[in-house]
């Protein structure tokens, strides 16, 4: 027990405070042992259920391998060339780009608008408004998809069709989800419905984190509200905006639930995750599924790195 304490205290305070010389290495060993013991269960779960499968996916992407045939054989880059030249996968990449643009734009604009609006509310009003705004985030993706499918119903019993036609914006009922490009936009917006809340929370925190004095000083300097927004709010909000962007990218690249519920594995709308599911569990081709998932993850990683660099470069203000 006492040894624990001796080991813990210096460590907790960080390296700045040197630990007493006598017994230092023994104490360090004990700290190591304790730390590793505490982390071990978590790391074991991650190692077996995340790291091992990740490596297995990468290895499998170079193998010919099917769900119904347990014999795997090295096949070089064949899975990659086949997947990259496959119409469905190309369309999935294109669609995912489309979803990404729609989702991030929607989350940025709506999130920022809503966050600014929230900032103007006080006390109980703000708490109530926040609860309402966060609700969509809590709703399971498939249920959200189902709820939106009621609204987007291609007949007149769909809420959107009925409302738009009654105000004269459309002449006949539209099958929104069947349209190639409009369908992507509409589905992207339904995903944004679930994603905007997180954007609002992050952006609101970013807004609140901007010191009041900066605004006051600029008022003294004669800046108006609009100029303040451009010259103070936006630049200082940059880390929060980058997080929202990063989140949008991760969301778009992992998108599956809502699209699957709204349009199934329709090749016009399919996402990368959907194409992977299609290869593995509809076509039984695990090799293709591996290659598709590795390509998609590589793209995610590249985008994440770019964003992270942007965030960290601009972090201090």
């Amino acid at each position: 027990m006492r040894a624990d304490r001796a080991a813990l205290l210096p460590a907790a305070r960080g390296p700045a405070r040197p630990s007493p010389r006598p017994g230092r290495s023994a104490a360090r060993r004990r700290a190591n042992r304790l730390g590793l013991a505490l982390v071990a269960p978590a790391f074991a779960v991650i190692a077996v259920l995340v790291l091992y499968p990740t490596i297995s996916s990468v290895v499998g992407s170079f193998q010919r391998y099917e769900l119904t045939d347990p014999n795997r054989a090295f096949s070089g880059l064949r899975n990659y060339t086949a997947v990259l030249s496959d119409d469905t996968f190309q369309q999935a990449l294109l669609n995912t780009g489309g979803y990404f643009v729609v989702i991030t734009l929607a989350v940025l604009l709506m999130g920022l608008g809503t966050a600014l609006w929230l900032q103007s509310l006080k006390g109980a009003w703000r708490a109530i408004a926040l609860t309402v705004i966060v609700l969509p985030w809590s709703i399971p993706g498939t249920v959200a998809g189902v709820l939106w499918s009621f609204i987007l119903n291609p007949t007149g019993s769909g809420l959107l069709n009925s409302v738009l036609k009654s105000v004269g914006l459309i002449g006949s009922y539209q099958a929104w989800l069947n349209k190639p490009i409009a369908g992507i936009v509409v589905i992207g917006l339904t995903v944004a419905w679930s994603a905007v809340p997180l954007g609002v929370v992050v952006l609101l925190a970013g807004l609140e984190g901007i010191p009041r004095e900066i605004y006051e000083q600029s008022l003294v300097d004669g800046a108006d509200r609009l100029r303040q927004f451009g010259s103070i709010t936006l630049p200082l909000l940059r880390p929060a905006l980058a997080i929202v962007l990063l989140n949008g990218a991760v969301l778009a690249i992992g998108l599956f639930d809502q699209v699957y519920v709204l349009v199934g594995l329709d090749p016009d709308k399919i996402t990368i995750a959907g194409s992977m599911y299609l290869y593995a569990f509809r076509d039984f081709n695990f090799g293709f599924g591996f290659a598709a998932s590795v390509v998609a993850t590589a793209i995610t990683a590249a985008i994440s790195l770019v964003y992270l660099r942007l965030v960290y470069r601009e972090e201090e203000y």
Partner: peptide, 11 residues
């Protein structure tokens, strides 16, 4: 899981 990881399902 680790022990049986090499064998696969299917069939």
């Amino acid at each position: 899981l680790t022990l049986t990881a090499c064998s696969t399902g299917g069939g």
